[in-house]
Design a protein around this nucleic acid. Structure first.
Lengths: 200, 200
DNA sequence: CCTACCGATCGGTAGG
DNA sequence: CCTACCGATCGGTAGG
C-alpha cells in the first residue's frame, strides 16, 4: 500500500511556491516584494508560506541555483568539446540563449542580483566563475585569429554576453520568437554585423 | 558688500544628497535602501535628509529625470539631422554610449526601474517613448537596405540597445575605456561583426 | 526671524 | 495552513 499523501487543500508545494514567488520577485524586485505580497499571489496568509519554505532568502537561493545549475551544466559539456574556438563560442552563445529562455524567470532574477546578502554574494561568485569561462573561450578565439583582432577580448566578452543577457529584459515566452530564431538573429548581428553586404 | 553665504558645516545641498543617494540606490537597489542607509552615507541623521529633499521617492524621480532628459535632448538633435538612416543610427548609438557613461549612475538606476510606483511608471513610459524613436530609426535603415534584411527590425532594436544598456552593468569610470573607444568596439561588433575578415 | 540640523517618536509594516 | 502576535525597522515628522 502506498503511503497516503498528506492532504493539501490548495495544492501548494515548495515547487509551486517557488515558481509563483519568482514571478513576483521579477515583477516587483526581490527587496520590493514582501511576504504579504507573496501570500496574496499564492492565495494564502503570509504565515502559511513558512509552512512550505523556510523563508524569503531560501526562496531566492533556490531560484538562483536553478539558473546557475543550468549554465554550469553547459560549461561541463563544452569542456568536453573540441574544434575551432569561434565555433565553440557560437555553440555556447546558442546554449546560453536556450537556457535563458528555458529558465527565464530564474535567470532574470540572477541577472538582477547585486550582492545584498550572503545568498546573493554566493550567486555573484558563481556567476563570475561562469563569466571567466566565457572570457577564456573568447580569448582562445582571438588567439587563433578567428575573431577580429582590433577589439579587446575582455570587452568582446562583456558586450557579447551583455547582448545575450539583455534578452531577459523583454522576452515574453507567449508571443516571442523561438530560442533558435532568437539565437540566429543575435549571432547574425554580433558575428556577421548588421550592415548589409555591399553589392559588388 | 556681498551677502554673506549661509554657513554650511557639512556642505550638503539637494545636489550632493541626490548624487550620494543614487550611488547607494545602485549599490543596494532602490527598495533595498532605507533612509537610514542614506543617512549613514551622508554622515547625517535620517531626519536631516528631509531638510534637503521631500522624500525618498522624490530622490528617485529627480535621478530618473537626469537620465531621461539626456536621452531626449539627443532625440531632439537627431530629429533635426539628415543623411542615410544607418549613419544616423550609428550616431545615436554613439551618443547613447556617451550619455550612459556621462550620466552612468542615473542611467543605471533608470535601467533597473520596474514600475513599482507612479514615479517608476512615468519613467518607464518616457523610456518606452525613447525606445519607440530608436525603433523607427532602425526601421528606416532596414527600409533603405542599409542593414541586413534577414533580421526583424524590432528585434535588431532590442538587441542593439540591449548591448548598449548592458554597459551599465559593468562599466567603471575610473579604469574603463573612454566612451569613444567603447562605442567604437560596440559598433565594430554589432555593425561589422566579430568574425575576422576572411583572407583571400 | 534664519539655516542646518538633532533626539525622539509618530502610525504602520517588515520577516518570522 | 490560520490567528495572534514578537522585536525591529520602515519612511516620514514633531518640537526645539
Amino acid at each position: 500500500m502506498a503511503t497516503p499523501t498528506p492532504t493539501r487543500k490548495r495544492g501548494h508545494d515548495p515547487e509551486s511556491v517557488l515558481s509563483i514567488a519568482v514571478g513576483v520577485f521579477n515583477e516587483r524586485g526581490y527587496d520590493g516584494t514582501s511576504m504579504e505580497d507573496l501570500a496574496r499571489a499564492l492565495g494564502v496568509t503570509k504565515s502559511a508560506i513558512y509552512y512550505h519554505v523556510p523563508g524569503k532568502e531560501q526562496l531566492l537561493a533556490r531560484a538562483l541555483d536553478r539558473a546557475l545549475d543550468g549554465l554550469f551544466a553547459m560549461v561541463a559539456d563544452e569542456r568536453a568539446a573540441s574544434g575551432p574556438a569561434i565555433d565553440r563560442l557560437e555553440w555556447v552563445v546558442r546554449q546560453s540563449v536556450r537556457i535563458l529562455i528555458d529558465r527565464l524567470p530564474y535567470v532574470t532574477l540572477l541577472l538582477r542580483v547585486r550582492g545584498n546578502s550572503v545568498t546573493e554574494q554566493a550567486a555573484l561568485e558563481r556567476r563570475r566563475e561562469f563569466d571567466g569561462f566565457i572570457g577564456h573561450l573568447v580569448k582562445d578565439a582571438a588567439a587563433d585569429g578567428s575573431i577580429r583582432p582590433d577589439v579587446d577580448p575582455a570587452l568582446v566578452t562583456r558586450l557579447l554576453f551583455g547582448t545575450v543577457n539583455s534578452i531577459a529584459e523583454w522576452y515574453q515566452p507567449a508571443r516571442g520568437a523561438s530560442p533558435e530564431d532568437l539565437a540566429d538573429a543575435l549571432l547574425k548581428m554580433t558575428f556577421n554585423g548588421l550592415r548589409a553586404a555591399p553589392l559588388d
